[in-house]
Design a protein around this nucleic acid. Structure first.
Lengths: 142, 142
DNA sequence: ATGGTTGCAAACACTTTGCACATGA
DNA sequence: TCATGTGCAAAGTGTTTGCAACCAT
């Protein structure tokens, strides 16, 4: 019961028409086992720890493929780089402190309702949304 | 009645402890006269049309100052570059088509309530938030 | 076998920094 | 006058592209 992610990742990849490779398994695993959104550097570190070696470029390519396939969503904290989150964990949002970079989870937002509303009204397809709050955390505020 | 933004921009700058310069007036004016968020290149184009010459670097510096002073907020459409919006126009959100890049305004979201809630619960200071929807527009959907 | 995947080098795009000169208050 | 703002050159960071070698199916 503890961790079936390895198997899940394989089927996830197959369902997305992506071949199963160590780097892809590692990246999906990283995103499933981590609570905070990960940037490319963090993903590479995770892979290194897991004894999986993968070039920076490969990580970018894998992440982009996962985003296109809808398995992963990109998040921007306005610091110039993208972070990524597994779709299954994308049901919450974030508060980002502009001073210390601290990230806190924000749970109590129901954007799905708005999302459906937009789809109906505008005739568009919403794949994902981003809702992030920027400011100063309780410590930096003072 | 038509356009008092020039005067407003001056006082806006003074209130923010920023000296009044042509480039700064031009950038503030651009952001107040345009409905869609502008990236750096668009701002430079706008300045050129207004016969104001300013180096790319200067535009970055001015924008950063305006963001820090809270006059302008940055927006990310996940395409690798920041766009900027005047705070007085930041009361709506966006839908971005991942295929053609089309941007549509989304009006019907009341995030301010959530924002206040977060400030109270977490003891943080929320300066601004981002809420953007990503997907396919009605044309690209087909 | 073969088409998708990877590594490496290089290019690209966006943004920041350092420093001398110019300018607004 | 003098702190602040600007231009230019250069560097920094994040990301993409081209191509040959490699590997999963």
């Amino acid at each position: 019961m503890k961790n079936t992610s390895k198997h899940d990742c394989k089927t996830e990849l197959r369902n997305a028409d992506l071949k199963v490779t160590p780097a892809r398994l590692g990246i999906l695993g990283a995103l499933e086992n981590t609570s905070k959104p990960l940037d490319i550097v963090s993903l590479i570190k995770y892979l290194n720890i897991s004894k999986i070696k993968a070039d920076r470029v490969t990580v970018f390519r894998i992440i982009n493929a996962l985003v296109i396939k809808g398995l992963v969503k990109p998040i921007q904290f306005n610091d110039g780089k993208l972070r990524y989150e597994h779709m299954s964990k994308a049901d919450h949002h974030h508060f980002i402190c502009g001073e210390c970079g601290d990230i806190e989870d924000i749970l109590e937002c129901n954007v799905e309702k708005i999302e459906k509303n937009i789809q109906k009204k505008k005739g568009v397809l919403v794949k994902y949304h981003s809702l992030e709050f920027f400011g100063l955390c309780s410590r930096c505020k003072k």
